[in-house]
Design a protein around this nucleic acid. Structure first.
Length: 691
RNA sequence: GGGCCAGUAGCUCAGUUGGUUAGAGCAGGGGACUCAUAAUCCCUUUGUCGCGGGUUCAAGUCCUGCCUGGCCUACCA
C-alpha cells in the first residue's frame, strides 16, 4: 500500500469555556481516525489549537479583571488537560494568538488584497460608550420595531421574526453594561466572496470533498444566489490581530481561526525541522478537517476561498458530524446532562466514552444520542464480557506455559478474522466506526465459544495435557490480540495493556494478520473495570451540583445578587444569565400593559402550524379573545380547556397566517417543550386585572 | 413551504449491485459450565420490513404518492 501523507485537524475550541462531552464527539472521532491512519503506517499529523480572539474573550477578561493573555493561557491549560485525559493525541496543540498565526494572517491578507477581493464600506453599528466597545448584534437587546415585543436581540425578533439591524431597535440596551448604546459609523473591510462563486460551486459540488447532504445544503442555501460579502474587520477595541494596512481595525476572529490550523502546523514544523510547504502547499499531502455541522459555512465556503486565493492546498475532505444529545434531549445544565470532560473523568474511564461514541458514529451528520443505559450495557457486554474476557480467562494458564511455537488449529478463526481486516479498515477510513465496531464484535462473538468448547480449565488439571492447554491459550490470546489491534485506534490504553501482557507492543495494523508465537506471557492484570450504573448516576448528579454553585458569581448581569448563604433551593443562575434583566421601566410604562385573568374556553391544534395552538379565552361575560400561542410542544390542547391563564389583553391584534391573534398568553421558559404558562392562585376570576 | 436523513423483533441496529425460508446484539424464557470482572456457552419466543400504488419472473432493496420522527432552512407568531 502506498504510504500517504495526511494532515488532520479538529475544530479549534473557543477559549471561553470548558470542554464538555459534546466537544468530545469531535475530538474522539478525529483522534480515532488519526490513530487508525498511523496504525496503517501512513504519515499523519494531527494539529489543533485554542481559538482565542474576539469580543467574548475580551469582555470576559475585563469582567474578571485580568488580561486576555492570562485568561486564554489558563483556558488552554484546562483544554489540554481534558484532551489528554481522554487520550486525544495531538501532534501539536497551538493557539491562534501566536506569532506564526499573525504572520500567516498577513500572508492571506496580502493575497486577498492582491486578488482584489477586499472592499471597504461604512457600517453603522451600536456603540456602548460605558464598555468602550462596538456591540455585536447579539449583545444588544431592545423592543422590536415591527411588533413591539420587548427584550429582543439586535438581529431579529423571535416573536414576529422580523429581521433588522440593531440600530432599528426601540430603546436598545447593551447587554454588557445596561447603557443605552449610540450609533457610530466605522469603516469595515469586506471580502467579496461572490468573485469566487464559480470556483466554490465547482469545489463543493464535485462530490469529492463533502458529504452529499452538505453539498446539497450549500447548493440550496448559498450557491443559488450571489454570495454575500463577508464583514471581516472589527474596529478597536478588539482582542485579536490588528490589520497592517488598516490601523485601528482588527481581523474578525473567524478570519484568523482557520488560519490557526496552518499556524499550528508551522509551529510543529519549526520544532521538528520540517518545511511547512511540504504540508500545506504540496498536492501529495491530504488535508482532512473534522468539524461540527454548526460551522459548515465557514469551512466549506470562506475557508476554501481563502486557501485558493492564498495558494494553499485545499482540503481533501471536510468531515462533518452532528451534535450530541443526552438521553434523547439537548444537553441541559439543570438536568445534569451538560457534562464537562473534567466531571466525566472524575467518575468514569475515558475508554468507555471512546468506545461508545465509536459504536454510534457513522459517516453522516446525524446527531447522536448518549443513552446511559445503552452506554453501561455496551461497555459491559462488548468490551468486558466479550473482548477482555478472552484474555482474562486464558492468560493465567498461559503465564505458566507461554505461547506455543506453532499456531494451533483454531477452526480457521484467526484466518477469518485476519481476512475481515480490510473491511474493518475500510469502515474506519470512511468514518463508519459503527460498522467497524460491529464487524469487530462479530469476531469476538466467535472467539468465546471456541474457548468454551476447548475447556482449558479441564486440561489445566492434567499435567500430561499441558501441550494441549498451551495450544488453546495460544489461540485464545492471539484472537484477543487480533481484536485489540483492530480496536487500537479506539482503545489505545487497551492496546498498551495487551502489549505489556504479551511482551510486544502493538504498533501496526499488520500485527492483526500474523499470530504471535513463542513468547512468554506476563501475569494478567485487570484491563477494564465494568461500568457501574451508580457511577454514571453520580456523574450526572455531580454535573447538576457543579452548575448550581459555579454560576452564582460574576457573570450575572445586573443582578442584585441574592446571597447564596441561606438559599436552600440552590436555583441555578442560568435562566437569568440567558436573559438578562431589561432596562428599568416606570410604573407608567408598566400600566400600559393590561394583564387580565382569562379562562381557556377551547384549545385546538392548528394543523399547518408547527408551534401554535389556537386558544379561545374568556374574560368573563361574553368577552372573548382568540389567541395563537406558541405552546404546542409543551401542552396538549385538552389539558388547557377550563384553566385560568394570564393574558395580555390590550395587545394590538395581529394578522397571522392562520387567523387574527387578539392578544397573548403569558408564559416563561426557554421555549420548545419547556414553556410554562402563568396561572393565578385559586380564587381569581376571569376579567380581573393583574396589578 | 423547501432541503436532507431515518422508519426492519420489546430496545439498538445490519441487510452489499433487486434473487432461496429477513438477520445480529441486548432484553425475556429454559438449560449448562465454573477458567474468567455474578463474566461465558447452548437452546429458545417475537416481524402486516411505516402505509398505498407501480416497475419486475422476483421488491426490505428500484420508482411514485402519503404518514410519522429528527436535523437544517424559510415564513408566520
Amino acid at each position: 500500500m502506498a504510504k500517504r501523507q495526511l494532515l488532520v485537524t479538529a475544530a479549534l475550541p473557543y477559549a471561553n469555556g470548558p470542554i464538555h462531552l459534546g466537544h468530545l464527539v469531535e475530538y474522539i472521532q478525529t483522534d480515532i481516525w488519526v490513530r487508525f491512519q498511523k496504525l496503517r503506517g501512513h504519515r499523519c499529523l494531527f494539529v489543533c489549537a485554542d481559538d482565542t480572539h474576539g469580543t467574548a474573550i475580551m469582555l470576559r477578561a475585563a469582567k474578571e479583571g485580568r488580561s486576555e493573555i492570562e485568561l486564554i493561557a489558563e483556558t488552554q491549560q484546562e483544554h489540554e488537560r481534558d484532551f489528554a485525559g481522554f487520550g486525544i493525541a495531538f501532534d501539536h496543540y497551538g493557539s491562534t494568538n501566536s506569532d506564526e498565526n499573525y504572520e500567516l494572517c498577513k500572508q492571506f491578507w496580502a493575497s486577498l488584497r492582491a486578488a482584489g477581493l477586499i472592499v471597504e464600506r461604512e457600517v453603522s453599528q451600536l456603540f456602548d460608550a460605558t464598555a468602550g466597545t462596538f456591540l455585536a448584534d447579539r449583545f444588544v437587546k431592545g423592543t422590536c420595531p415591527r411588533c413591539k415585543s420587548p427584550d429582543q436581540y439586535g438581529d431579529n425578533c423571535d416573536k414576529c421574526g422580523a429581521t433588522y439591524s440593531p440600530a432599528d431597535l426601540i430603546d436598545p440596551v447593551s447587554v454588557h453594561s445596561g447603557a443605552t448604546p449610540e450609533v457610530r459609523s466605522a469603516p469595515h473591510l469586506f471580502v467579496e466572496l461572490e468573485q469566487l462563486h464559480a470556483f466554490l460551486a465547482e469545489w463543493t459540488q464535485s462530490g469529492e470533498h463533502l458529504q452529499t447532504e452538505v453539498a446539497n445544503y450549500l447548493k440550496g442555501h448559498f450557491l443559488g444566489e450571489p454570495l454575500r460579502d463577508w464583514d471581516i474587520s472589527r474596529p478597536a477595541p478588539y482582542f485579536g490581530f490588528e490589520i497592517p494596512d488598516s490601523p485601528g481595525n482588527y481581523w474578525y476572529v473567524w478570519f484568523d481561526a482557520p488560519i490557526g490550523y496552518i499556524a499550528s502546523t508551522w509551529q510543529w514544523c519549526k520544532q521538528h525541522g520540517e518545511d511547512l510547504n511540504d504540508w500545506w502547499k504540496n498536492p501529495e499531502t491530504e488535508i482532512h478537517h473534522f468539524i461540527g455541522k454548526d460551522i459548515t459555512y465557514f469551512h466549506t465556503l470562506f475557508w476554501p476561498g481563502m486557501l485558493k486565493t492564498a495558494g494553499f492546498t485545499l482540503p481533501t475532505k471536510v468531515h462533518i458530524h452532528g451534535f450530541l444529545n443526552v438521553a434523547g434531549e439537548k444537553m441541559s445544565k439543570s438536568k445534569g446532562t451538560f457534562i464537562k470532560a473534567e466531571t466525566y473523568l472524575q467518575h468514569l474511564d475515558p475508554a468507555f466514552l471512546r468506545y461508545y461514541f465509536a459504536s454510534k458514529l457513522g459517516p453522516r451528520l446525524d446527531d447522536l444520542d448518549l443513552n446511559m443505559d445503552e452506554f453501561v450495557n455496551k461497555i459491559n457486554a462488548d468490551l468486558v464480557g466479550k473482548v477482555v474476557n478472552l484474555a482474562s480467562r486464558s492468560a493465567k494458564f498461559a503465564a505458566r506455559t507461554g505461547l506455543a511455537e506453532k499456531y494451533p488449529d483454531d477452526g480457521g478463526l484467526f484466518k477469518q478474522a485476519a481476512a475481515a481486516g480490510e473491511d474493518i479498515a475500510a469502515a474506519y477510513e470512511h468514518c463508519d466506526y459503527a460498522k467497524a465496531m460491529r464487524l469487530i464484535m462479530e469476531l469476538a462473538d466467535r472467539a468465546n465459544p471456541y474457548v468454551e468448547n476447548a475447556q482449558p480449565w479441564v486440561l489445566a488439571k492434567d499435567p500430561a495435557r499441558t501441550g494441549e492447554l498451551q495450544a488453546i491459550c495460544t489461540a485464545a490470546l492471539n484472537l484477543f490480540r487480533q481484536l485489540v489491534v483492530y480496536l487500537a485506534p479506539v482503545l489505545p490504553r487497551l492496546a498498551e495493556q495487551c502489549g505489556e501482557l504479551l511482551g510486544e507492543k502493538i504498533e501496526h495494523w499488520s500485527q492483526s494478520q500474523e499470530p504471535l508465537l513463542g513468547k512468554s506471557v506476563n501475569a494478567f492484570e485487570h484491563m477494564l473495570a465494568r461500568v457501574k450504573k451508580e457511577d454514571v448516576d453520580a456523574m450526572i448528579e455531580d454535573s447538576k451540583e457543579k452548575e448550581a454553585c459555579s454560576t452564582s458569581t460574576p457573570e450575572v448581569v445586573g443582578s442584585g445578587a441574592v446571597s447564596g448563604a441561606s438559599d436552600p433551593w440552590k436555583d441555578s443562575a442560568e435562566p437569568l444569565q440567558a436573559e438578562p434583566l431589561a432596562e428599568t421601566c416606570s410604573i407608567d410604562d408598566f400600566v400600559k400593559v393590561d394583564l387580565r385573568v382569562a379562562r381557556v374556553l377551547s384549545a385546538e391544534h392548528v394543523p399547518e402550524a408547527r408551534k401554535l395552538l389556537k386558544l379561545t379565552l374568556s374574560l368573563g361575560g361574553d368577552v372573548q379573545k382568540t389567541v395563537f400561542a406558541g405552546i404546542k410542544a409543551a401542552y396538549e390542547p385538552e389539558a388547557l380547556v377550563g384553566r385560568l391563564v394570564v393574558c395580555v389583553a390590550n395587545l394590538a391584534p395581529r394578522q397571522m397566517k392562520f387567523g387574527l391573534s387578539e392578544g397573548m398568553v403569558t408564559a416563561c421558559g426557554p421555549g420548545g417543550a419547556e414553556v410554562y404558562l402563568l396561572s393565578p392562585d385559586s380564587g381569581a376570576k376571569p376579567g380581573q386585572r393583574v396589578h
